[in-house]
Design a protein around this nucleic acid. Structure first.
Lengths: 154, 154
DNA sequence: AATGAAATATACTCCCT
DNA sequence: AGGGAGTATATTTCATT
């Protein structure tokens, strides 16, 4: 699918505020509201726009700790973990990765006791390494046009 | 701020589709549209709702590779990196972490050449470890009510 | 804190270009 | 692929409980 300058502008607007009305987006990009609706629908249909999510503050709802946890699965324990992980509600993101570890997870936790309990659940599946997140330098940075990326190179 | 059952239902709806109208959310949670608007505004003001983002497919817009990259900064090179990292448009998420490494980044890249170029930019700041992401097992899992989390423990 | 009603704004559908 | 018109729906404000 070809993403022209107008669609990049729409993607940019939606990545900054997904709850903008089509009319508001139209004003930003110089299009009528039906035209915006049509372009958004096409990008949804092509899978360019996968969905729209609200960013909820972890700390404001009682999760004081965030951690990146890696797992190096024991022999025969990766598959059981892959089945089980979807039940771990603390896991916000979970990726299969190359390298010494098989899995990396981004996890939200209420406190140290919660962290300890969570690690206890993991250690039956493999070797666990825990990295507490101290601060977020970049969070969900919007994706922009390729050409803009090229310009930032050295 | 107290988040009651109704607000949890609103947060759940918005995390699944942030572009739902207030009226549609109201139908889900059993509230009128002005009541929904008022509750959302309060949660925004208290910082519980931090924003609304569109999820754009990396692969569909030409980024074939995703990686988790860690950095163990050389002496005196962490600060320069922290200043520079916001210019790296490939970095979607970046965290300061505890442990042997100082930084972990989630990065999107066009191809292997792009990955190589990106690593070249990083190695002036410290020791780099690259983990290619093979698949996403859990992505941006919505945060739900504490009580629901407690039920999943064991 | 929620509802219902009135005014404004937006979305949706259809037709035209 | 986008604009414009008409209809349905949604948002916003305000009064009321």
């Amino acid at each position: 699918m070809k993403i022209d300058v107008t669609n990049w502008a729409i993607l940019d607007a939606l990545q900054h505020n997904a709850r903008l009305s089509n009319a508001e987006i139209g004003r930003k990009v110089g299009l009528s509201s039906p035209a915006v609706a049509e372009r958004i629908k096409k990008m949804e249909d092509y899978g360019v726009l996968e969905g729209y999510t609200a960013n909820v503050s972890y700390t404001k709802i009682g999760y004081q700790l965030k951690a990146m946890i890696t797992l190096r699965a024991f022999m025969g324990r990766l598959k059981p973990f892959l089945i089980k992980v979807s039940e771990f509600k603390e896991v916000v993101n979970c990726y299969r990765i190359t390298g010494n570890e098989n899995i990396i997870m981004e996890v939200v936790l209420k406190d140290q006791i919660h962290l300890q309990e969570f690690i206890d659940r993991l250690i039956t599946y493999g070797e666990v390494k825990t990295h507490i997140i101290l601060s977020n330098l970049i969070e969900n940075s919007p994706i922009i046009d390729h050409k803009k990326i090229d310009k930032t190179k050295i």
